[in-house]
Design a protein around this nucleic acid. Structure first.
Length: 928
DNA sequence: TTGATGCAGGTTGCTTTGACTAAT
DNA sequence: CATTAGTCTTTGCAACCTGCATCA
């Protein structure tokens, strides 16, 4: 119950239009952009202008996006602009549909088919409702029920007799159904409409914006209850009659399929005069008295209805014959000869789109039952396939759903001209899109396993295609699955052997099965096959000149007055598997281009090995091993075919030698690469450290000026420690901004930056891009640094060591020891200490921090910064007080250059630092 | 009325072995 | 200097398909 309410897909009449509407439907009012909106959007669009300027924009399909104007340019699209220019001189010829419309039509068709399949599947499921079965059984006369239930092998041992009795019982049931079920012909059924008409209706509905309530024209089934209601009333549409009859059969324990002919919008446009396009909700049906509109056929008969049949015809209200089939139906058909074309009209006995298949257990086969027209057939061709003139009922796909929910494509059983017409109404399968579309859809509802009766049925369905009469028209032969005419053979096809199975208008008809696909000898080689010696081509065709080389040859031949170059085509049986000449004495046989054709693995010469690794050729050369480059395919560029070379082919005996050498070479390469990377790492570290030193010096130089503010700004420093710190507090905000702007962060953050940057290391010059959005959290989070360390490969054991090993997670996973770097720094430090003794403790690299940081909790850092504050102030005092803001900026610039930080990157970095984390760089040289 | 035919315009798929420059 | 890797580029054509008009 609840599941059925979730799945409401009922009476799908038309699909939603595809996204790409036909170009003609663009509303000019929407696409015209005003100057005002142009100015308004200018600023927002400026950034994109540079790159967007020359981008190709398909203005025809996206009217809304074209509202974004380019500066200084106003584009107004209207119908005239998107319509194809027409030829002036010759008589106006309507151009074919645009690619968008083609795509839209195809999509509409496919979506509609899928929706109808889903609808049928769902409705089929509803028919299994036990309450529905019970209610229906309560209506069926007892003798009908007994007729089926008594048909057991024990009661009737003779299978022929059982079969006869089954047919009889079925006929009686059908008779009862015809006399009891009241078909309301006014209700719309799931018939199709031509594409243009569907589109018209959709547009109408769109304009009306849902005010049109046509529910009364449809038979809305929301759940099993709706079906139960109609079953008790014994009243409904033609479709309902078939559906309920199917349910009834199931209730009587007779296996029954719900069969439906899917009436999807055709994806092809049938050429038709516009005046025959009549809307479904056309005016005449509205002008009819309601009493007439809602009369059933029975009532019409009773009231002696002699009115116009047009309304019934239009609304797909088919007046089927409720009298026994032998009654002449033509007396009920009163047609206006001139109104509309004949194809608009309905035969009262036109085939339905829902019917039933009943499985006869005695016969072991499916019997076709049409409960609407009260027909039982074992052979159903000509019974369900409507005349081609009927516009609203086209047999293209017929699916049958069984009680277990699985379905089957049974179209060949019902289509009069399955190969000639029906199959051609389906979307064609193209090579680029994998396989046949409908087959892929049908596969979704087919039973995943097979029953014995499936085999029997499939054989029957397959046979049905061949028992079909030969086409009666030229078009019918085109792409026919069984027959073929010589004129429809493709360039690379031939009938071999040319067995004549008939004649059509003097032309020989061949079986399609004898058509062979041909290829040139070169093409066969690409398949790993070679034309056997002495084979004569089955066909000769003009050579194509696609590449420049071929073109030149052809032109030369033409100039020499020779005949056109032809090439022979061969069939597969004329070829054999290509065997490359074997390797002799370690020498690999090569082709005229000095390489080896290896389009398929079978083309590998005997005794040879294929080494597809890149760069292995170099090794083989070094080792003096004879090799040939393996050509596995071609790429086409600039009218030239370029071989795709993948690896080499060598004598198999050398395989291991070469591979060993190759692997060694590879590891050497890797090592080299790693060494280079390590060098780069040191270089980068050096650069960073130097930059930090410069900055530190600069900060002190600045700090003497406005030292207290910086401390206030830096949350890590206790503001209360120094009495002077509050005296020159005025430009605090400004200073803070400065710091934020130029300072990538505290040491931790710098380290953080660096460690993160390691990840990007092999790509040079990206050292400072590494700051990510999460670093703000890192800065505030107590374990942030440690986490980062872990991220970059510092294992816990290392944290308490004096050296810090950072695993560089690049191509090579060797750890990079920083102690080398630190050693360097210490050397530098002692050197500078000798030079300028009192400068030694000022701004050197925080090597101790680099070493110790991971093991130290954050609080300890705070205390250490307090300890060092006095020494820092001392050094700062040496900086000249005359420095101006401009000076500072210049210096900052220098720092940035030194640090190789672009403005943008630096901003990114500083943005991550929250206000209270903007601390001055800690100088913790006191660790030793 | 239907189908054959031809035309226009669009789509599909076949074609099948360089030359040059920059970096190493 | 020799060798190698990368990058030009995303064609052009014939056959085929589709829709339409015309005519028998």
């Amino acid at each position: 119950m609840s599941s059925s309410e979730e799945f409401e897909m009922e009476e799908v009449q038309v699909p939603q239009p595809a996204q790409n509407m036909p170009a003609e439907e663009i509303d000019p009012d929407r696409t015209a952009s005003t100057l005002e909106s142009l100015n308004h959007q200018n600023t927002a669009d400026d950034d994109d202008d540079d790159q967007d300027e020359w981008e190709e924009v398909d203005a025809s399909v996206q009217p809304t996006t074209s509202q974004q104007p380019q500066p200084g340019l106003q584009i107004t699209l209207d119908n005239a602009a998107v319509k194809r220019p027409e030829k002036k001189d010759s008589k106006p010829r309507k151009a074919g549909p645009s690619p968008e419309e083609r795509a839209a039509r195809l999509a509409s068709h496919k979506i509609h088919v899928i929706a109808l399949v889903a609808n049928a599947k769902h409705r089929n499921k509803l028919l299994n409702d036990e309450l529905l079965h019970a209610r229906m059984l309560s209506l069926v006369p007892m003798h009908c029920q007994l007729a089926f239930s008594s048909l057991t092998p024990s009661n009737v041992p003779d299978p022929i007799e059982r079969s006869r009795l089954f047919d009889k019982a079925l006929k009686r049931l059908l008779d009862w159904w015809r006399s009891s079920f009241d078909i309301d012909y006014n209700l719309k059924t799931l018939l199709t409409t031509p594409y243009a008409q569907t589109n018209d209706e959709l547009n109408k509905k769109r304009k009306a914006k849902g005010t049109v309530d046509d529910n009364d024209q449809y038979e809305v089934i929301r759940s099993e209850k709706s079906l139960q209601k109609r079953a008790l009333q014994m009243k409904g549409s033609r479709d309902m009659s078939a559906q309920l009859f199917t349910a009834l059969c199931r209730a009587l324990n007779v296996p029954a399929r719900l069969v439906t002919s899917l009436q999807a919008v055709p994806y092809r446009v049938q050429s038709q005069p516009t005046n025959t396009v009549v809307s479904l909700d056309s005016d005449d049906s509205d002008t009819q008295p309601p009493t007439e509109r809602f009369m059933t056929w029975k009532e019409r008969q009773r009231s002696g209805f002699k009115g116009d049949d047009e309304a019934f015809i239009r609304g797909e209200a088919v007046s089927a014959d409720r009298a026994p089939p032998q009654v002449k139906l033509s007396s009920h058909r009163r047609r206006k000869p001139k109104k509309g074309s004949k194809q608009d009209e309905f035969d009262v006995q036109s085939p339905p789109i829902f019917w039933t298949e009943v499985f006869s257990r005695p016969d072991g086969r499916w019997i076709v039952v049409d409960p609407i027209r009260s027909l039982i057939r074992t052979k159903a061709r000509n019974m369900m396939d409507p005349q081609s003139a009927y516009k609203y009922n086209k047999m293209t796909y017929v699916v049958a759903f069984e009680e277990d929910g699985y379905g089957k494509d049974v179209t060949p059983r019902y289509a009069k001209q399955y190969g000639t017409r029906t199959v051609k109404q389906r979307p064609p399968s193209t090579k680029s899109k994998n396989g046949d579309w409908w087959e892929s859809v049908a596969a979704t509802f087919q039973r995943p396993y097979r029953l014995a009766r499936d085999d029997v049925e499939d054989a029957e369905l397959h046979q049905a295609q061949f028992s079909e009469p030969m086409p009666q028209s030229m078009q019918g032969f085109k792409d026919h699955p069984v027959y073929v005419l010589e004129r429809h053979l493709k360039r690379e096809e031939v009938v071999n052997p040319p067995r004549e199975v008939g004649r059509f208008k003097g032309e020989v008809v061949y079986p399609r099965a004898n058509v062979q696909l041909l290829k040139t000898s070169e093409n066969w080689l690409r398949q790993g096959r070679i034309v056997v010696e002495g084979a004569q081509p089955l066909k000769r065709v003009k050579q194509r000149a696609v590449t420049i080389g071929r073109r030149r040859v052809q032109e030369a031949a033409a100039q020499a007055g020779e005949e056109e170059i032809m090439q022979g085509l061969y069939s597969r049986p004329q070829t054999e598997l290509y065997r490359a000449p074997p390797v002799v004495g370690g020498k690999v046989p090569k082709n005229k281009f000095g390489n080896i054709d290896l389009y398929t693995p079978t083309m590998l010469p005997e005794g040879a090995a294929h080494l597809p690794q890149k760069g292995v050729g170099k090794i083989a050369k070094k080792l003096g091993v004879d090799y040939g480059e393996a050509v596995t395919g071609f790429e086409f560029r600039q009218r030239r075919a370029n071989p795709v070379i993948s690896g080499i082919v060598i004598d198999a005996t050398y395989k291991e030698t070469v591979m060993d050498a190759f692997e060694e070479w590879q590891s050497q390469q890797a090592e080299k690469e790693h060494e280079k990377m390590v060098r780069d790492v040191y270089k980068q570290w050096q650069k960073v450290v130097q930059g930090l030193r410069i900055r530190e010096r600069l900060k002190e130089y600045r700090g003497n000026d406005q030292q207290p503010h910086e401390e206030v700004a830096g949350g890590a420093v206790n503001p209360g420690t120094d009495a002077t710190s509050h005296q020159n507090a005025l430009p605090a905000n400004e200073l803070q901004g400065e710091i934020k702007k130029y300072q990538p962060g505290t040491h931790e953050q710098s380290l953080d930056t660096i460690t993160k940057a390691q990840r990007a290391l092999p790509r040079r010059n990206r050292l400072f891009e590494g700051r990510e959005a999460d670093s703000e959290a890192d800065a505030t989070d107590e374990g942030g640094i440690d986490q980062d360390m872990e991220e970059v490969g510092v294992d816990n054991a290392n944290k308490n060591k004096d050296t810090l090993e950072i695993d560089v997670p690049a191509k090579v996973g060797h750890p990079v020891a920083l102690d080398v770097l630190i050693e360097q720094q210490e050397q530098e430090k002692s050197a500078s200490a000798q030079k300028v003794a009192h400068d030694a403790d000022t701004t050197h690299v925080p090597e101790s921090r680099l070493r110790m940081r991971p093991s130290r909790p954050k609080r300890a850092r705070h205390s250490s910064s307090e300890n060092t504050s006095s020494s820092r102030r001392i050094t700062r005092s040496r900086v000249s007080h005359n420095s101006t803001r401009e000076d500072r900026k210049r210096n900052d610039e220098a720092v940035r250059v030194a640090l190789d930080i672009s403005d943008e990157k630096e901003d990114d970095a500083s943005d991550d630092v929250s206000d209270d984390e903007v601390a001055p760089i800690e100088i913790s040289s006191d660790e030793e």
